[in-house]
Design a protein around this nucleic acid. Structure first.
Lengths: 331, 331
DNA sequence: TTGAAAGCGATACCAC
DNA sequence: GTGGTATCGCTTTCAA
């Protein structure tokens, strides 16, 4: 088989080879029924011979849509965010949309990066505190469909979240039943909105029961190492440590295997560490965001639906790290 | 502040508002030095007032490049693949390239999806057995830069992999030192190339030592559940089970906590399950692929470099699931 | 230094 | 049914 052109074939070459106009090629390829079976075959043959694939750029420019959407993360670290993307990608693929990912990750030019992405997609999912409200509002004002994920609502923009506050209260109640009375909250409530909700819930639960508030210990990060550091330096052995997420809690356990501690996310590791935590529907969070975004993108723009909000349920998963429950020890 | 047009401003509106030509706007915005400071300011002001963001489509079409690249997965499941993307995204961002992700995931139209992605990017990273060699070859013949990741090489295409065979041999040797003599390999060697390498290495190690070959137990999947199923139905208590990945091994442990078993990947969960496994440089795999791809994309296409191959080192991580090592029990 | 105009690669309207 | 052509939004010669 002879090596053909190194330069990608365009619709023009196909038209020429098939002896028809580019309009006809376009029709034949998108199987419009305004072409004879015969000409279609000629075109298809020519296209195949040239290994022709229509340029997405030309197509999108002409159609006025990208057929792609993006999801932006605060930081692409840890299994939690990963799971969310999985759900997102699967759902997006379902309605034929490509997906772009972007981790703002403490990048200095985060806003620029997001704007760039905005110019490549039909809609954007913004997860957590990856960019400021101001940026979200500006983007939304553009008319770009946006869905907020695991983040506090912005007026006029759809929001999908997981239950934080209420379940955090339930978590505290459970710890109180164990008899714990000295609490620490490990994490940075001012950073991610999710964390803020968990913190508020924990304190609310404590206040309700008349026990003094939890001592706040900033973690400066949300990974194993941050948890270890805190355990080594900032936490007493008889503290009941409510962590902002599983990774912190697991870090604490690595350093102090018998510390009373709880996490949040229910990572795979949690089940092996015997960590009491809260299960979030991560795949479902991603999938819901993708679906909502698609709705926005395809809805008639002259009469947009009102902003939607949804809080997906989370549930307490009790294991052994909150204290022993029965004669059988899990850890 | 008055609500401006709902329709996105183009370079023409900016030009009109600033009282210059679109050529000048283009120059001013990409800070070419062929514009007076004065006109530049006028243009910038107009652009800001209109909230103008250049269309990526127009830009890319004119420039002849996407400034984006893609990574395609066999299945976007589990923490392992996730970690690889993290490294990939971070590296790609480093040289200003957007990232598209695609999970072929047993999708029936996998090839079409990959081709679609191919038309949206300047280059593609193909991970594992997400598409057939034939498709890779066709894509490569197009002139599209491609990097293979965790996959057997295809002639003329760059490949980045992690060490499988040699480390699998070391793993087997370690198990032999423990005195184990009855082996099972859990996984599907014919599926992912990585798994094939591990299987081959394990059998080679066994053969070398004169012990009979491992019994192959197909797992039909690589997740916790597949591991549990196998443990319940296909594995004897005195088998030493070499698993294709950590998730399988963890599944086995869930079902049979004292089974002799090893994994592969060193997921976070492995360290809490006391799982003996092999550590892969996942971030580094992703980052290397992204860097290599970028090189290919930016190299002079008239004299491309020869296909590169790299095997990143992996290392055995001994914990307790391969048998007790000393008086102190880890599990 | 600036502007006019020619692409880039498709889609789709309007004639024929 | 098909073909001609305007159009999408930008970059980049080529002139002025």
């Amino acid at each position: 088989m002879a090596m053909k052109a190194l330069t990608k074939p365009t619709i023009y070459q196909v038209a020429q080879l098939a002896g028809v106009s580019i309009a006809t090629v376009s029709r034949a390829l998108r199987d419009s029924d305004l072409v004879t079976q015969q000409t279609r075959e000629r075109v298809l043959a020519a296209a195949k011979q040239l290994q022709f694939t229509p340029s997405r750029l030309g197509r999108s420019l002409a159609e006025g849509r990208h057929a792609a959407n993006g999801i932006v993360f605060p930081e692409l670290v840890g299994p939690y965010y990963a799971e969310v993307v999985l759900g997102y990608e699967a759902a997006a693929a379902g309605f034929g949309s490509s997906v772009l990912i972007l981790a703002t990750n403490g990048r200095p030019d985060a806003e620029a990066a997001v704007r760039d992405m905005a110019s490549r997609v039909d809609g954007l999912t913004v997860m957590g505190q990856s960019v400021s409200d101001e940026v979200v509002e500006k983007l939304a004002a553009t008319g770009l469909p946006i869905v907020l994920l695991a983040r506090d609502p912005v007026p006029g923009v759809d929001t999908v979240r997981a239950q934080n506050k209420r379940t955090a209260e339930a978590l505290v109640e459970h710890l109180l039943e164990h008899g714990h009375r000295q609490f620490v909250f490990l994490g940075d409530p001012a950073g991610e909105p999710d964390v803020g909700g968990r913190y508020a819930g924990a304190q609310a639960g404590l206040a309700k029961s008349g026990v003094g508030p939890a001592r706040l210990v900033p973690s400066h990060g949300f990974d194993l190492e941050a948890g270890r550091r805190a355990a080594r330096e900032l936490i007493a052995e008889n503290d009941a440590v409510i962590c902002a997420n599983d990774e912190l809690a697991l870090g604490v356990l690595l350093e102090r295997p018998s510390q009373i501690v709880t996490g949040w996310d229910d990572l795979m590791a949690a089940q092996f560490a015997g960590l009491t935590t809260v299960r979030q529907p991560m795949r479902e969070l991603g999938a819901t965001a993708a679906r909502w975004l698609n709705r926005r993108i395809t809805e008639r723009s002259d009469k947009p639906a009102a902003a939607r909000r949804r809080v997906l349920p989370t549930r307490l998963v009790v294991r052994s790290s909150c204290g022993t429950h029965s004669p059988e020890v899990h850890r």
